[in-house]
Simulated assay, not measured.
Amino acid sequence: MGSRRDFVHKLTVSAVGLPVLGYSTSLENYLPTFNSAAQLRVAIMGLGGYGTRVANAMESCKRAKLVGVISGTPSKIKTWQSKYGIPEKNCYNYENFDKIKDNPDIDAVYVITPNGLHHDQVIRVARAGKHVICEKPMAINAAEGEEMVKACKDAGVNLLVGYRMHFEPRTLEVVNMRRNGEFGKIMFFQGLSGFTIGNPDQWRLDKKLAGGGAMMDIGIYSINGARYMVGEEPIWVTAQETKNDPVKFKEGVDETIQFQLGFPSGAVASCLSTYAMNYLDRFFLNGKDGFAEMQPSTGYGPIEGRTNKGPLTAPIVTHQTVQMDAMAGIILNGEKPPIPVDGEEGVKDLKIIDAIYEAVKINGRVIL
């Protein structure tokens, strides 16, 4: 397997193009509602595998429309123009995309490029006066993330992060049960996120472009999942790194990290982030009165799981379609998402990642 994109695609049946399947819970509880007929006109920056997945999913969107592209590869731009009907005036490269400032047909840019490029690209988009959606992790550290948040606020534009699981119905089914007290006092969360990475020359194993290794790719799912599943912000972190292949995983590029989080209520989380083991996509939440188990928990779909009350029954959807429609509502109408997806949310994850790396370095506890 070459990347997280390949992993989540192969581990689970792709949900792209799937209709909503049978369920016993009302759709209205999970899918976004729309207050107007306006559409968010989006340009995608970065036309790789995940950018293509988002573009395909957006063909089914009601509130978001793909209208532009930004890429350093002219041949990809031509292919996307033909496939998605994108006019020449909405096509840019990485050198000239600041000119979108003068293009009234683009409302927002979805940045889907290597992590190390997010900071500068997001700030440039904000200064061009366009709303920004940025893939996760939002930056390579919290300091960069905070600069991005400030730049977007100063420009008066929205900064959202591509947390597709925050809109995924079965994830929300578990979160709603926890919020309603159906699991009782939360005691423990486990998050396992990992796959065996392939090509050693890819950007995900380049410290400058990725910002790290598995933690900056697949590991963020367990970090973010711990927060929305437990429903609290952690107050301490401990972590341990294992590196069996220092040739492939060079200095600053983590292969496997186990990390633990402590929460104000006394709940704890035990998580694993790795590029060295396959089939790790599992969440487990334990409370005094019940539990939830999800496997796959963050793949592209379908998400599967059960609680002490039975199987999860919320609808199966195309994650990116629901995400983009919901984000259109946030940007156009100020709608509130079920779980935050703003830049501040992204910074919270980055602070935890910073603390995990520090905990590995000092072999001790880091207070958040």
Rank of each mutant, 00 (worst) to 15 (best):
G211R: 05
G346M: 05
Y94N: 08
A276Y: 01
Q39M: 12
K361F: 09
H131E: 01
I303V: 12
D98L: 11
G162Y: 12
P340Y: 06
K150Q: 10
E59M: 13
P246C: 11
G191M: 08
K130A: 10
F263Y: 13
V230F: 05
E358A: 12
M294Y: 11
I303L: 15
W203I: 01
K136C: 01
T298V: 11
K243Q: 03
Q320N: 13
N115L: 00
I218L: 04
Y30I: 02
G51Y: 02
T196E: 15
K101N: 07
I86N: 01
W203Y: 10
M277K: 15
G334K: 10
S60C: 08
P114V: 00
A269L: 09
A155E: 05
E233V: 09
S265F: 08
P19F: 11
L27R: 13
D201T: 13
V268C: 11
I316G: 00
N141S: 00
G129L: 08
K10E: 13
H119G: 03
E182H: 05
D107M: 11
V175G: 04
Q323R: 13
C152W: 05
G290M: 05
Y50Q: 07
R164Y: 14
E168V: 02
H118G: 03
P200F: 00
P74Q: 07
E241H: 03
N158E: 15
N224R: 14
G184H: 10
G301Q: 06
A328Y: 03
V161L: 07
I223F: 05
K130Y: 09
E168H: 07
V157L: 08
A139I: 02
I70Q: 04
M327Y: 05
Q190F: 12
T113P: 09
D154Q: 09
K62Q: 14
K150Y: 04
M324A: 14
Q258I: 04
N141E: 01
D120K: 11
V322Y: 06
Y357K: 14
V161A: 09
S273R: 06
A128I: 01
A269G: 15
F259H: 09
S24T: 15
D245Y: 09
A276I: 02
G299T: 12
I112P: 00
D349I: 12
F283T: 04
H118W: 01
D281A: 14
F291S: 13
S82W: 03
A15V: 10
W236V: 05
V174W: 10
V268L: 13
I220K: 04
K150G: 03
I303P: 00
K208F: 01
G85E: 11
W80N: 02
P137N: 06
K83P: 06
A143P: 04
K153M: 09
I303W: 02
R178P: 07
E146D: 12
K207E: 03
E146H: 01
A239S: 02
F284Y: 15
I330C: 10
V54L: 13
G225S: 07
R53S: 15
T298N: 09
D206R: 05
V230H: 00
L31F: 08
T25C: 07
S3D: 09
I112N: 11
V247Q: 10
Q190S: 15
F167G: 02
P19G: 10
R282E: 14
V347T: 02
N35R: 15
P74D: 01
N93G: 12
T274N: 01
T171Y: 02
N308P: 01
R306I: 06
A38F: 04
R204N: 12
A143W: 08
R179M: 06
K101L: 02
